[in-house]
Design a protein around this nucleic acid. Structure first.
Lengths: 205, 205
DNA sequence: GCAAGGGTGTAATCACTATTACACCTTCGC
DNA sequence: GCGAAGGTGTAATAGTGATTACACCCTTGC
């Protein structure tokens, strides 16, 4: 079987459908988007969509998990940049914030929350791949610092949780309030990271 | 109010419908609850429901805004209890937390978020009555303390925001993750309040 | 008691949309 | 070119559920 050509065609179709679906879900929400809308936008046919994704829920799954990236990679690469704990935390804060406030991510989160009422398992899998993993990555970073002799007040896990709450809370707020006049300036972010450093009694050097 | 007799019949009906609707919305979500379900549970008739609430959206509005209490009252009564700033903040934290983690409140928030995609105005009004008002109440409290000479590091408004993020973030997490193994112990709450006091450099007398 | 008007129960209406079925094309290896 | 395998377009199917219409039954003020 020379599947390359087969997969290629199918794959292109798949991708086009997922992309159209994502755009429409973000724009109008999951329930309000009809499969007809999606096919109109993506081209192709309803029959193919059903063959590939099974049903509408399967399509949502494909859309969501394509974008469900954990912040762990962001944290790791921020750490790799080197510097003092304070410098690294400032960098992590900025990078995470930028990622989590990406409008597409926010919209997807909003959709996932909406579905959480009827499908708990779905939302569990989503957050295991995103929030949970991000938190353990940060916990690890703090633990390592602690082992290296960096002074800090509190358990790494609890501190990681607090830090993420301070930084990512804007994602929650955005997802919840739909951009209700939040100011997420760079200064504000720096101030919060400083607040964290003070609260955790992490002294730079 | 001597109108009891007149209002009584209609009012009783109204209340029964709102109550049934709330229970069902919380249980199954807004979209999955049919007006038939509600009438079955509340008694009465579909015709009355339409006469009183106009349509399904009107009913949701009635349900949500009945429970949309701001945390401002909670804050005010915590303050009225007296004590040092630290003591008061600990009390506020506990009371707010208890209120915001009430399963009914969490479920309603989840529903509101779900609707936010299609109806921004609705969610705006909801959060203006709840979160926004809570935050200004706390800002006022901190400002007063500051004026009275309590040392603190940072603007009252920014600090109020941070405090609420630290304390109420569990509401977000609950609403978002649908109770994905969160531990919200009393110790954890106290630790976070302590963290806040340290970060804000508020010294207790 | 008794009309009148509000409340009730039921049965349409009406629109919508996921899902399936099916008969026609396209592509692609040969 | 050719013949499948797979893709496409369109038209059912089918279930749902908001909304409306309407004919009945209470309550209630007289």
């Amino acid at each position: 079987m020379t599947e390359t050509s087969e997969l290629c065609r199918l794959d292109r179709r798949k991708r086009a459908v997922v992309e159209a679906a994502r755009a429409l879900f973000i724009e109008q929400g999951f329930e309000r988007t009809t499969l007809g809308d999606i096919v109109d936008r993506a081209g192709g046919s309803l029959a193919t969509l059903y063959k590939v994704f099974g049903n509408k829920d399967g399509l949502l799954e494909a859309v969501v998990f394509e974008k469900a990236v954990s912040g762990a990679d962001i944290i790791d690469s921020s750490v790799a940049g080197g510097g003092s704990p304070a410098q690294i935390l400032h960098r992590i804060a900025e990078d995470l914030h930028a990622y989590f406030l990406d409008p597409e991510v926010v919209s997807l989160v909003r959709i996932v929350i909406g579905r959480s009422i009827s499908d708990r398992d779905f939302v569990r899998r989503f957050f295991e791949r995103t929030a949970t993993r991000t938190q353990s990555a940060l916990t690890t970073v703090l633990s390592v610092w602690q082992a290296e002799g960096v002074a800090m007040h509190g358990e790494p896990e609890a501190l990681a949780e607090i830090f993420l709450d301070l930084i990512v809370s804007d994602l929650h707020a955005e997802a919840i309030s739909h951009g209700l006049g939040l100011r997420h300036s760079s200064d504000r972010l720096r101030a919060r990271t400083e607040f964290f450093l003070t609260g955790a009694k992490i002294t730079d050097r």
